[in-house]
């Protein structure tokens, strides 16, 4: 295995690991808040579940980028990475979703916690409450797009 392949694989692993870490963190935080609301008012289960799941998307984006990377570097398809330079490019291309995924999922989790607080007090404001964590999603999507565009245009 070449050093370039090691770099490319590192990028693929980081995109799933960091974005997944952030999602686990965010979903965990929101889950605690959701459980607190359901403990007192079980009727709010569906609403708080949706808010809990919002920070989970970054982990999926990370996984998607990993698959695309693996499909380009000769693991699941494509040509094996032969040189260090290309490997480094793959790794750098994976970093946007890895880093932004980690940070945005954590903050989306905290925003979801706050929104679950809104639903707890005013269940009829669910639509508005959902918009706040959804805003954080924008930056995860931007990072996902940059990573996909970069990976698919290497070489």
């Amino acid at each position: 295995m070449t050093l370039g392949m090691v770099f490319a694989l590192t990028g693929a692993v980081l995109s799933t690991a960091l974005a997944g870490w952030g999602s686990a963190w965010g979903v965990g935080l929101a889950g605690q808040a959701a459980a607190g609301v359901v403990a007192e008012d079980p009727d709010q289960f569906a609403k708080v579940l949706i808010l809990q799941l919002l920070p989970g998307t970054q982990g999926i984006y990370g996984l998607l980028v990993t698959f695309i990377t693996l499909s380009n570097i000769g693991i699941l398809g494509g040509n094996p990475v032969a040189d260090t330079h290309t490997g480094l490019l793959y790794m750098l291309a994976c970093l946007p979703i890895a880093i932004v995924g980690l940070i945005s999922a954590y903050h989306q989790g905290r925003t979801s916690v706050a929104s679950i607080g809104i639903v707890a007090k005013k269940p009829d404001q669910f639509g508005k409450a959902m918009l706040f964590p959804a805003m954080v999603e924008t930056y995860a999507i931007l990072a996902l797009l940059v990573s996909i565009l970069a990976i698919t245009n290497i070489g």
Partner: peptide
């Protein structure tokens, strides 16, 4: 602070009463 998320969520529901 983050260890109180569950408690705060319960309190938010309780505040309604």
């Amino acid at each position: 602070d983050l260890d109180y998320i569950f408690a705060v969520a319960r309190i938010r529901v309780k505040e309604k009463s």
